[in-house]
């Protein structure tokens, strides 16, 4: 056996663009890229959410005034997108969790299509609840 050598982790940030290669036209690559995009979007949302909620510490009136700024149709669309992104990220996360522990790898295509189908159904349902 070759001796294992401990090395510092050399992840090259410049190479992370290789993760987003649109020439790889297979379903799992689309999900792989979307999972990263949605992860970043959810992180940004979480930061904004915490920042907004933290206004409560400055008093009820300041919070109520700032929260009113979000009561527009534009923000409703943003909310809709965040919910869809959250649902997709969660469902895809479950799929990845299953793979991580070796469940369903032989049926990976079916599982990927299931994630997309469930997200599509959720999109219609959330749109119905929010807009109709």
């Amino acid at each position: 056996m070759v001796k294992e050598e401990k090395q510092s982790h050399p992840v090259k940030l410049s190479s992370i663009r290789a993760w987003f290669d649109f020439k790889r036209k297979y379903i799992n690559n689309w999900l792989f890229m979307l999972h990263r995009f949605t992860g970043v979007a959810l992180t940004i949302y979480l930061i904004l959410h915490v920042k907004t909620v933290s206004l409560l510490t400055e008093g009820k009136e300041i919070y109520n005034t700032s929260i009113k700024e979000f009561e527009t149709f534009g923000w409703l669309i943003v909310l809709f997108l965040i919910i869809i992104i959250g649902i997709f990220h969660g469902l895809n996360g479950i799929r990845l969790f299953l793979y991580q522990f070796s469940f369903g790898v032989k049926h990976q295509r079916t599982l990927s299509i299931t994630v997309i189908t469930l997200t599509a159904i959720a999109t219609v349902l959330v749109a119905y609840i929010l807009f109709i």
Partner: peptide
Amino acid sequence: SACPIVASDPL
């Protein structure tokens, strides 16, 4: 070649 993780992590 197809693995995007190899691209970002040479080890």
